[in-house]
Simulated scan of single mutants.
Amino acid sequence: MKNSVKLIMLLFISIIVINCKQEDKSPSYHKGDLTILTDESFKSVTEALAEGYMINYPETKIKVVTKKEDLGFLDLLQDKARIAVMSKELNPEEIKAYEEQVDLKFLPAKFAADAVIFIVPKNSPKNSITMDEIKNGLASESKEFIFDGANSSNLNFVAQKLKKEPKDLKFSVLPGSKNIIEELNKFPGKIGVIGLNTFSRPYDKTSEQLRDLVKILPVENKGVLYNPDSFALREMKYPFTRVLYFLTNEGNFNIANGFIRYSCTQLGQMIVQKEGLQPYNIYRREVQMR
């Protein structure tokens, strides 16, 4: 009789242990570790969203790793990361590779409107730039435009906008957008090309200091000047407005998809707005007056 009771107890304990192990392995959006790959150009907004998510879900730990856009996409395909932040439009071959290797439908989760901007030192006499100047300058051996490197989101996006391949453009390189801002005055006549999110935080001290070093050139298109302000981004009027989106290889509702959902809801979109970017999902605020 005692042996039978012991056997039943052992079976009961075994079932509890097995169920606990299964529960630990089950998908969870509110606990666990996540690495997000992002181009340096939109690192600031990615970090802000990650901080917001960790505050809401204290059992999560999110690490934001800077990687050139093209290389981040390759890492996602090779399952070296679960989520990447992108801005360029993938071509049919890239979409096919994503769907075949990740085994998911290509569904970009759009969360913000950012911009590629053209900057000159504060004391430069130049006050605007035309689309023709940009096209001609990027075909010139003078290499007057300075990018933050090959494979970067800024170069990819400008090339796409001009309907060119990045390898066909002629440009100079300084590693890092912050470096371009700080060193630009050492290269007279050169024009820096960076992402708006590099210094878009309205009340951030570091952003203010960087903004004070340069001026943003409005872009003239068909006789009209466009600044990368909130209206021009919202209406996609500024010629180099780009939409930021998440890609994941996670097929269930785990921490990566939880983070994506959070970023696209009202809380996440408020963070995007505080970053000085245009939220992609606009939520109407209703006030009842009594």
Rank of each mutant, 00 (worst) to 15 (best):
S200N: 05
Y53A: 14
S41W: 03
N136S: 10
Q78R: 13
F111H: 06
L77A: 10
R201M: 12
K161N: 10
A50S: 14
K63G: 01
A256I: 06
K25P: 01
K215M: 10
V5T: 12
S140W: 08
E93H: 08
P58W: 13
Y283M: 11
R242F: 01
L104F: 07
I146C: 03
Y29D: 04
I16R: 04
H30I: 12
I55T: 15
S14R: 02
N221P: 01
I36F: 00
N227Q: 09
S200F: 00
N281K: 07
V287W: 05
G276E: 04
E59G: 02
L277W: 06
T66G: 02
G195Q: 08
K163A: 10
L34V: 05
P27F: 12
K237F: 04
I146A: 03
D24A: 08
N123L: 13
S140Q: 13
Y53E: 05
P27H: 08
L247W: 03
V272M: 10
D79C: 06
N197L: 04
N136V: 04
L196W: 00
L217S: 08
T38L: 08
V120W: 05
L267H: 05
Y238I: 06
N254A: 15
I15P: 00
R211P: 04
M1I: 04
K222W: 00
L233G: 12
F73S: 12
N281R: 05
S14W: 03
S140K: 09
L10Y: 07
Q22H: 01
I83E: 10
R242L: 12
N257E: 07
V116R: 06
F259D: 04
Y245K: 03
F147Q: 07
M1L: 12
N281G: 07
M131H: 08
E69K: 01
S14L: 15
E89Q: 12
K163V: 02
V173M: 11
D24E: 13
F246I: 06
A109R: 07
M270D: 14
E89S: 11
F253I: 10
G149K: 08
Y226L: 06
F147Y: 11
K167G: 07
P58H: 14
I62K: 09
S153I: 09
L213E: 09
L74I: 13
Y283V: 03
A50P: 02
R284V: 06
N249Q: 13
Q269D: 10
F171Q: 02
Y29R: 03
Q160M: 03
K164N: 10
I134T: 04
I13Q: 03
Y29V: 01
T248I: 09
Y280D: 07
I191P: 06
K190C: 10
Y280H: 09
L74W: 01
E89H: 08
S14T: 15
E47D: 12
Y53H: 11
K274R: 14
I62R: 11
D114C: 08
P279L: 09
N123R: 13
L244H: 03
G72R: 11
R261E: 14
G258S: 09
F187M: 13
C264K: 14
V120L: 05
E208S: 09
P27Q: 11
N221A: 05
K80M: 11
M86A: 04
A115S: 12
E275I: 00
K164P: 00
R201C: 08
D103K: 15
L247N: 05
Q101P: 00
E286Y: 10
R284P: 00
A256K: 13
